[in-house]
Amino acid sequence: MATTAERTDAQVVRDVIQGDRDAYRLLVRRYGDVLHSHAVRMVGSQDVAADLVQDALVRGYRRLSSLRDPDRVGAWLFRILANRVRDHLRSTRRKEISLHVVPPVPGERRDPEEEASGAEVHERVRRALGRLTPEQREAFLLKHVEGRSYEEMAAVMDLSVAALKMRVHRARDALRVLLKEFA
């Protein structure tokens, strides 16, 4: 008999659908960090991101029985979160999000001058990213910050590679202008 830790996503999904609610905790643990990191990068607020992740995970539970491919529940949950994040950004109509609350990178110790210069660069890139459309920001982050291939992005976002490339290209074109503007 498979232990809890060994259960595949498909097995966990089946167990949850058959009534083992607590099994859903495994999916929360497996995908919570990835979802939260993406949400923080998109909305710039850890509090808002946490609320969106919580909402997406509860929504995923409620609709689990409509999942077509239980082996890909991680990508499915990511898609629910991504939609939720885009809706949030649209509904709040924020053209430029505040990303000041993103924590500094832990670990590295630099001299004060380098530190100031790095902080300035980070501020520029955060402001520039906040000016992109939600769709462009999402595609750019998946490609260049989360380091996913276009094929992985297409699988997660349920979009074609060509459409995603176009979004990333437009994001880079916009960033090129914005970064000069913020320089």
């Binding site: 939260h36 946490a50 992740v53």
Partner: peptide
């Protein structure tokens, strides 16, 4: 710079 400005942020345990 984009990558270091947007580090991975683990989900808080209360989620």
């Amino acid at each position: 710079a984009f990558r270091t400005a947007h580090p991975a942020t683990p989900a808080p345990s209360w989620i």
